[in-house]
Simulated assay, not measured.
Amino acid sequence: MANKDIHVVPAGDQGWAVEAVGGGKRTVFASQEEAIEAGTERAKEDKVELLIHGRDGQIRKRNSFGHDPRNIKG
């Protein structure tokens, strides 16, 4: 799943899911903490961005673990 951002999203009554943009492997966890931990590891391995969504579906946090297209000094 190279170059596909990883999202931690609500999975209804099942808990929280970790999934890549455009489909592929989706893994469900009982808690958001577990999903964030697994999503972080997956994003680090794939060198992509991790986007963490709240219960309302809005992105509440993002972390980049690889290619950052912006050229920012400092």
Rank of each mutant, 00 (worst) to 15 (best):
E33M: 06
L50G: 02
A11Y: 05
N63P: 00
I59L: 13
G74A: 02
G23D: 05
A43K: 00
E37L: 03
F65H: 04
K25Y: 05
G74N: 04
H67W: 09
N63C: 01
I6E: 01
M1R: 10
K73S: 12
R55H: 11
D56K: 13
V9Q: 10
E41K: 14
H67D: 05
H7F: 15
M1C: 07
H7Q: 12
N71I: 12
E34C: 04
A2R: 14
K25S: 13
R62L: 10
E33V: 13
G39Q: 03
K73Q: 08
D13N: 14
L50P: 03
T27Y: 03
H53E: 13
N3C: 05
M1G: 14
A43E: 02
D13R: 14
E33P: 02
R60W: 07
A17G: 13
A20K: 00
G22H: 09
R62F: 07
G54M: 08
A30S: 09
F29N: 04
R42Y: 02
A2G: 09
A20L: 05
G39T: 05
N63D: 05
G22Y: 06
G57A: 03
K47C: 00
V21D: 11
Q14G: 03
T40P: 00
G74D: 03
Q14T: 12
D5I: 03
